[in-house]
Amino acid sequence: MTSYRAEGTGPPLVLLHGLQVGQELFNQLRLHLESAFTVITYDQRDRGNTRFEPSAYTTDDLADDLALLLEALGLSRAHVLGASFGGMVAQAFALRHADLLDGLVLGATSQAPFRPERVAAPVAELLRALENGNEEHARALLARMAPAATSTSADSGAPRSPDRNEGLIRRFAAARSFDTRGHLGDITAETLVVHGRHDAVVPVVDALSMAGEVPRAEVLVLAGCGHTWENERPARAAAAITCFLADAR
């Protein structure tokens, strides 16, 4: 069961959220897009209210989930915007389901997995544990990093899902297996690469390298913001995205 939300008027635009958040990431950005698009957000596997049988998966599987969602909604094509980890899923979707894609927007993302040298020490240790196949150590690290994931709900006192930490482990593992370097030349959609000038998670050079490989890519670097550009500059970003996608079909 996939939890989704669709609001607005116009051609469909699907927004793909990041690694540790859900569709609420786009609460601000969608307000500036709904006058031009039917904006669709949804919770990916192991996020929000979406429910799948627990199992390992890859970004390719998440891209296929999106294809199935479009089919269920009766949509033959859509624009797709992915932010951070969602941008990785969007790349996979563009490569696997080009026939379903109109315009593509890749925000604060990269062609390669998150690298330990670029993230905080606890996250780097978690990534190294997953890379080495030490899932038991990864679970212990995540339990220390995010104890609230296994605590009780402040509203009801009921336990949160016992699978929350396991779900994050699966999402981190999917990130570790991702790599589209050398493949983005096969993307046929018109593509806008959006990046915050001060992004400390994914360097701007990664965005430029990615755009250099996509045949029909343009780049928008947003001043005064970092990795969460969709919440730091939502109106500015939405205006640019709207103009770009108007010509992308």
Rank of each mutant, 00 (worst) to 15 (best):
residue 109 T to R: 04
residue 110 S to C: 03
residue 110 S to M: 03
residue 111 Q to C: 10
residue 112 A to F: 06
residue 112 A to P: 00
residue 114 F to T: 13
residue 121 A to T: 09
residue 123 V to A: 09
residue 126 L to Y: 04
residue 127 L to Q: 13
residue 128 R to S: 10
residue 128 R to D: 09
residue 128 R to I: 07
residue 129 A to P: 06
residue 129 A to E: 07
residue 129 A to Y: 04
residue 129 A to N: 04
residue 131 E to N: 05
residue 132 N to A: 15
residue 133 G to W: 05
residue 133 G to Q: 12
residue 133 G to I: 06
residue 133 G to D: 08
residue 135 E to R: 15
residue 136 E to H: 05
residue 137 H to Q: 11
residue 138 A to E: 07
residue 138 A to S: 08
residue 142 L to K: 07
residue 147 P to A: 04
residue 147 P to M: 06
residue 149 A to Q: 12
residue 149 A to V: 00
residue 149 A to F: 14
residue 150 T to L: 09
residue 150 T to W: 04
residue 150 T to I: 07
residue 152 T to Y: 11
residue 152 T to N: 15
residue 155 D to C: 07
residue 155 D to F: 15
residue 157 G to N: 10
residue 162 P to H: 11
residue 162 P to M: 12
residue 162 P to K: 12
residue 162 P to T: 13
residue 164 R to C: 08
residue 165 N to W: 09
residue 166 E to T: 13
residue 168 L to W: 08
residue 171 R to C: 11
residue 171 R to M: 10
residue 173 A to W: 02
residue 173 A to T: 12
residue 174 A to I: 00
residue 175 A to M: 01
residue 177 S to T: 04
residue 178 F to T: 00
residue 179 D to Q: 03
residue 179 D to F: 02
residue 181 R to H: 09
residue 181 R to P: 02
residue 183 H to N: 13
residue 183 H to P: 00
residue 184 L to Q: 11
residue 186 D to Y: 00
residue 187 I to K: 02
residue 188 T to E: 14
residue 189 A to L: 05
residue 193 V to F: 01
residue 194 V to D: 03
residue 195 H to G: 06
residue 200 A to K: 04
residue 200 A to V: 10
residue 201 V to H: 04
